[in-house]
Design a protein around this nucleic acid. Sequence first.
DNA 1: TACGGATTGCTATGTTCAACAACAATCGCT
DNA 2: AGCGATTGTTGTTGAACATAGCAATCCGTA
Lengths: 141, 141
Amino acid sequence: MDDPLIRFPGYALRRAANSAGSELSVRLAELDLRQADASALLMIDAHPAITASALGRALDIQRANMVPLLKRLESAGLIDRHAIDGKSQGLVLTKDGAKVKAKALAVIEEFEAELLSRIPAQHRAHLLPALNALWIDGADG
Amino acid sequence: MDDPLIRFPGYALRRAANSAGSELSVRLAELDLRQADASALLMIDAHPAITASALGRALDIQRANMVPLLKRLESAGLIDRHAIDGKSQGLVLTKDGAKVKAKALAVIEEFEAELLSRIPAQHRAHLLPALNALWIDGADG
DNA sequence: TACGGATTGCTATGTTCAACAACAATCGCT
DNA sequence: AGCGATTGTTGTTGAACATAGCAATCCGTA
């Protein structure tokens, strides 16, 4: 079918993100993780005792929407929360959390490699810098 | 904040798509259109009398979810439906639909140009072919 | 021509994701 | 001490997407 939309990078962006995202979700589901969960685990691992709201800012998830995410990770025994002061809470991985994070990282690394392998070689190295230019300090700061 | 995720193309894909998508939605909202609406208008314009289910396949929208979309476009007076045979219906743009489609196309063209302008020149031409490789006949073909 | 599988449009329903407004409690700066 | 800003939370809303099922219709083949 002749498609008048495929010439638009924005449209291709949406379709590619949906395609890649749904496939990654399937793989992460085997670890009982969602994409946001895995992102949070990796970020907490890189920044132990990070604050819930700081994590939300880093992942572009609003404070209100962090609540069920953190509740899920805590219920699964993957993270611990401890009070930093009277209003902030620091997040750290539990031992189980570290194990699951390692598995998730392996899944993601493999997925990313497969993703790149689908791209013609001459375009491959350009994808990441091009994408990053679109959202890092992009229009939505 | 040091971000362990920005080295992943898949993550950048999601963030970039969200960023670009939400911005485009704001602009299309001034025409009372959603992204799927605009996509449908462009596709119907390129394929007059296209079937509802064929349109859904082209846009990767399930038949069930086409119902409210088409109802919305029809209620707004942008499309007409006529029976092709006993079970299929052909979709065409109304005069108003053609006008709105032209406006939407202008919005999208401008948006896409701005999007590309944010990408360093040496990466710019590679984005579209790289993205298209990810979803056209990709893993979810 | 008659039959059976496939297709079409639709209803109903559920899930996930993300946005908003509001709130009490707390912090940090002056 | 006081005041604006921040934090974690609740509740609600809307969009986007998926599944299961259904009656009607089409189409290839016997």
